[in-house]
Amino acid sequence: MSAGSYEIAVSFTDVSKKLSGRQILDHLNFEVCKGETFVIIGYSGTGKSVTLRHMVGLMRPDEGSIRIEGDEITTMSRHELEIMRRRFGVLFQSGALIAWLTLFENVELPLLEHTKMSKKKRAEIVQQKLEIVNLWQDRDKYPAEISGGMKKRAGLARAIALDPDLVLYDEPSSGLDPVIANEIDKLINRLRDEHGMTQIVVTHDMDSAYTIANRIAMFHKGSMLQIGTPDEIQTSSIPEVQHFITGGKEGQVSRRSNTAIIRGMAPGMLSQRSAEAMDAKEAEEAEAAVATEEPQEGYVLLSEEEAAKSESPEPEPRSLEPEESHENP
């Protein structure tokens, strides 16, 4: 296998996937260029996390081709996948730190498993990565002793421990307060600008998307509805895109740095509220209570009237993502 230098870091060609009889990905096509931050947005349950899982080979598509820097991964053996995955860093929604290891040991884990570095060299790298995410002073704490935001930052330090070419983020700002969310955004930008990492971010947080993205892709019913720069997305004429980015409200959600006031809320409050509401776990609980009768429904596009009445930033469909079994247990 060659790790040739391609301008295209990731490409999906006609990728389709059915889960529990439901078409999750439907002839999905997109390409991510090297060195860019590519943000995927879309309603819950439209296949965003499933796309990330396909990218790292935790799931295989029913049909289509997925190439990472030119290497076809859909036909790779487990061993080949293991080698390929060393080019990746992945930040999971909850941080996914190993509970019985300290933060230091968690970040050290990939180095310990995949390199023959001396203990001193490993410690240096761990210190460097933990300092980037501002957690060096908490290195001896266990994941259970720290907050959700710290777990996420530690997860990020672990994801970049091996200086990967590609970093994937699954909802990096969900459940975080706006200040921490902002810090993560800055970090993502720093990794792109200073280290040239290609980054793919799945998020619901539009403020964050505008801050970090080179390009934003709107997911809809298992395929891409629109791919464009943040400005193109903001001025999109596609109703579904406008509906999503404005959270179903009239007018547009501002960037954090702007001072527009929407419905009497300051931008900070708005992003905090949206961060809370977008918290995937809360969303799931709400969905489980409401949507158990029709679990196969996709998202429901509200009419303008309904949308205006709705207090929720987005109509909640049922998300299948966290419950799906993957194919490489």
Binding site: I83, R85, F88, V90, L109, H114
Partner: peptide, 14 residues
């Protein structure tokens, strides 16, 4: 459930 097993797989740790 907390995706730790997936995280191990993704880190190429069996």
């Amino acid at each position: 459930v907390a995706e730790e097993i997936d995280a191990l797989e993704v880190m190429s740790i069996n």
